[in-house]
Design a protein around this nucleic acid. Structure first.
Lengths: 133, 133
DNA sequence: TAACGTTATGTAATAATATAACATTTAGAA
DNA sequence: TTCTAAATGTTATATTATTACATAACGTTA
C-alpha cells in the first residue's frame, strides 16, 4: 500500500497537518486563524485546500458541525462512504470503521430499488466519559 | 394516532405549511423571502420556528444542504433517527422509511460497544430520472 | 526546453447561513 | 387572575462560504 501523501501542495499540506494533529474536528475559520503565521491569510485559501483534501479523502467534513477531521482510516483513498459517532456533550468525534456496517449500507437498496455508492452517517450520543458524569 | 398539529404557533404554522408544500428542501433565507408578506421579517424568526419544528419532528434538516423538508412519515413524532436519499444532479431529496434499516442502525453498536439512539444518514446518488439522461 | 494545459495560489469583495441580546407579548397552567 | 413558559419582535452581529479576477507553479509532451 502506497501512502500518497507526497503530492499535497503547500497549502494543502499545511492545513492537513494541522487538522491531523488536532484531537477534535476543526472549523474553517479556526484553521484560518491557526495558519495565518504560515502565510495563509484568506478564507478562500482554506476552503480550497479543504475542498481538495475532502475530495481525495484525506479529511472528512462533519456536516452537522461544519467541521473537519483527518481520515482515521490509514488505507482510505477516496472515501465516499463515511460514518461517525459524535458525543453531544463533549463534541468528540470518532470515525467508525466497521466492515459490516459499510457492507450493509453499500448494499442497501431503497423501496424504489435504488442503490447508493456514497453516504454519510452521523451517530449521536454520549461518549463513555460523558456518560459517567 | 392523534395528529398533534393543532398546537403550532402562528409563525411555526406559516413556516411549516410553506415547507410542507414545497417539492424540494427549502433554505432558511428562501423561507424568509417567502413569508415576508405574512409579516415574518427577520432571520431569527425563521430560525426559531425551524428549531422548534425540527425539535418536534415536523421537519428535518438536510445537513449536507443546509435545507429543510417536511417529515414524510405521517406517524413521525420526535424523530431522532433519519435517513434520506439525495440526488446529486437534481437535488431531489426523499426521506427513507425502512424499518429494517432503522432497526439495523438503532441496534448498531460500535467497537467500544456503544449504541446510539439518534442518527442521521444521507445517501447520495442519481435519482431514476437523472440516471436516464 | 518551450509551449501548453491544468492545478494551485493570492487578494478583495461579498454572499449565505446562523446566533446574541434584549424587550415585549401570548398562551396555558395553577 | 396571576404566574410562568413559550413565542414574538427587532437590531445588530457572528460565522460559514463563494464569486470574480489575476498570477504563479507544475507536469506533460513536442
Amino acid at each position: 500500500m502506497v501512502e500518497k501523501q507526497l503530492n499535497l501542495s503547500k497549502n494543502q499540506r499545511i492545513i492537513f497537518d494541522l487538522i491531523d494533529k488536532s484531537p477534535e474536528p476543526m472549523k474553517a475559520y479556526s484553521i484560518l486563524f491557526n495558519v495565518q503565521k504560515k502565510g495563509i491569510k484568506a478564507p478562500l485559501q482554506v476552503y480550497r485546500a479543504l475542498d481538495k483534501l475532502v475530495e481525495i479523502g484525506k479529511i472528512h467534513k462533519i456536516e452537522s458541525r461544519n467541521a473537519f477531521i483527518a481520515c482515521q482510516n490509514s488505507s482510505c483513498q477516496i472515501s465516499k462512504t463515511t460514518a461517525f459517532s459524535i458525543c453531544e456533550s463533549c463534541e468528540k468525534v470518532t470515525e467508525i470503521k466497521d466492515n459490516k456496517l459499510a457492507k450493509y449500507l453499500t448494499n442497501f437498496s431503497d423501496n424504489t430499488g435504488m442503490n447508493y455508492k456514497k453516504y454519510n452517517l452521523e451517530f449521536f450520543g454520549l461518549c463513555k466519559k460523558c456518560k459517567r458524569k
